[in-house]
């Protein structure tokens, strides 16, 4: 099985004023297709930064990153945006839904930036919403949904373009333990269906749902 993510020697530095903070100090990570990987670590360990680099939302200071065999280190903003639009789905801790759009429109959002023909968009949105079990709440706004429902909408939004890679940043951080379990089961179902998932969490119980757990500490895997 080939690797979807092949990243090696990833460094990330932030400069605040005159001081330089090293967040990632030489990360090597390889993720196979259809793998469910959890990255664990205490807060401030750089796990979210790594996730954003893997999701082409941020760039490493140095290192090589091949996504599906393609080097994305030197790609322009436009190219990175296209990769995000067509191949990557994000799920965030704080859901990040647009409050003025209803459920359907929130899930439909990625099609604005999707490069391919969006003729089947409506059907694909419906399929995604059905997969997260919210087909009866299409016209509801985020404010009318519970935390767990909002996260399911966010997951539907992530998988509506059938991405090669789903990235989740503490997806259960803002929901109760029962809902948390539901969401993790949903991820597992998606993974069984062939989705590659990389999830960041600080909770070992959550991480235990993944096939493989990587632990990050002070910018390095241990």
């Amino acid at each position: 099985m080939s690797y979807l993510i092949e990243a090696s020697g990833i460094y990330k530095e932030f400069s605040i004023g005159s001081s330089v903070i090293s967040v990632l100090k030489g990360i090597d990570i390889h993720v196979k297709r259809e793998e469910f990987v959890a990255i664990m670590g205490p807060s401030g360990s750089g796990k979210s930064t790594l996730l954003y680099i893997l999701g082409c939302l941020d760039r490493p200071t140095s290192g090589t990153y091949l996504l599906d065999g393609r080097d994305v280190f030197g790609a322009s903003d436009r190219e990175l945006s296209r990769i995000r639009a067509n191949r990557i789905g994000f799920v965030f801790q704080t859901f990040n839904l647009l409050p003025h759009l209803n459920l359907f429109e929130n899930v439909e959002l990625p099609f604005f930036y999707f490069s391919f023909d969006d003729h089947g968009a409506k059907e694909r949105v419906m399929t995604a919403v059905q997969r997260v079990g919210l087909a009866d709440r299409l016209r509801h706004r985020p404010a009318e949904l519970s935390g767990g429902e909002m996260q399911r909408v966010a997951i539907a939004r992530a998988l509506v373009i059938e991405p090669a890679l789903i990235l989740a940043d503490e997806p259960t951080g803002n929901v109760d333990s029962k809902t948390s379990l539901e969401i993790l089961e949903l991820f597992q179902k998606l993974n069984d269906g062939g989705s590659t998932i990389v999830m960041v969490t600080h909770d070992s119980e959550v991480a235990s749902h993944a096939q493989r757990v990587l632990v990050l500490k002070d910018g390095k895997f241990i």
């Binding site: 999701g55 939302l57 903003d77 436009r78 945006s81 296209r82 995000r84 639009a85 067509n86 990557i88 994000f90 965030f92 990040n96 839904l97 647009l98 959002l109 990625p110 604005f112 930036y113 999707f114 939004r157």
Partner: peptide
């Protein structure tokens, strides 16, 4: 600002 971040995450380029 947050909406801009969300749109960027789902694939909006700077031009968009």
């Amino acid at each position: 600002t947050r909406e801009i971040g969300i749109r960027r995450a789902v694939g909006a380029a700077q031009e968009d």
